[in-house]
Design a protein around this nucleic acid. Sequence first.
DNA 1: GAAACATGTGTTATAATATTACATAAGTCA
DNA 2: TGACTTATGTAATATTATAACACATGTTTC
Lengths: 139, 139
Amino acid sequence: MKKSVVTKVKLTRNQSLVLDSLIKAGQPSGAYALLDTLRPHGFKAPLQIYRALEQLIDLGLAHRLESLNAFIACSHVSCESSGATAFVICDKCETVQEICDESISNFLSSLARKTKIRASKSSIELHGLCNGCSAVSHS
Amino acid sequence: MKKSVVTKVKLTRNQSLVLDSLIKAGQPSGAYALLDTLRPHGFKAPLQIYRALEQLIDLGLAHRLESLNAFIACSHVSCESSGATAFVICDKCETVQEICDESISNFLSSLARKTKIRASKSSIELHGLCNGCSAVSHS
DNA sequence: GAAACATGTGTTATAATATTACATAAGTCA
DNA sequence: TGACTTATGTAATATTATAACACATGTTTC
Ligand SMILES: [Zn+2]
Ligand SMILES: [Zn+2]
Ligand SMILES: [Zn+2]
Ligand SMILES: [Zn+2]
């Protein structure tokens, strides 16, 4: 898993704005939602968002949720350490828990070993109802 | 994890055609690639593909690879048993290994327990270079 | 400083993926 | 049969992502 080694980086204006939006959102955000949010700041084209996101993701400051085609700010200081992260997503309230511990990296290592793959990127996403939403929606 | 309980289902014509294409491809296939493949059989619109895929996925006969926006035929008899499946994807030769054992379901159960989520769907995808490709591309 | 290079930006257009809406047909069961 | 569900056909549209090009800015090297 390639990861940025940098601990402190100077973000460009666009990157900072996108990261701030992501943090403020506190939820998975689509690229076009971010674009709309940032139009008042002069953003006009999707590429401005996608380019900033690419950097932020490389730096471990944001993550892409593959199953939602959406993005979210990293909830840790930064995920540089391992890059082995799992996302647990409530489909009702859209809360996302970002889990990044040894159980994840161990699982991925073991999976890579078993399948003889030289892993470069992983995506673990678990959908369902969080504790609160699960209590409410007892259909 | 909700799963079909059916063991033998009669597929409709469209569903059979899409499944056959997926199996023949033996690789992740995009919806529009499937559409092109099936035009000679009368397919004309993306919805015909997406609708068939939805059924096939519900039946456990096909899977969606979230990180590729693509689909693949189930490599087991069917994944009805657990629905806890991991995909290991070579980014060079596009080979996909579908892993479905206790290590996967245990990991997911544990993750769900830790995060207090009532899980309904999961997606585990590991990218990298398979054994063969990794040997060749020693840059 | 000038040249060479890498990185970031702005903008337009376009590609790739997925869904809505509506009309029709076919299968299932009382 | 009627009532109902499921599958289909088709057109239009929505959503997500990238390509191509021009320009600007920053950094290194001489
Ligand atoms: Zn993170
Ligand atoms: Zn919730
Ligand atoms: Zn399967
Ligand atoms: Zn390979």
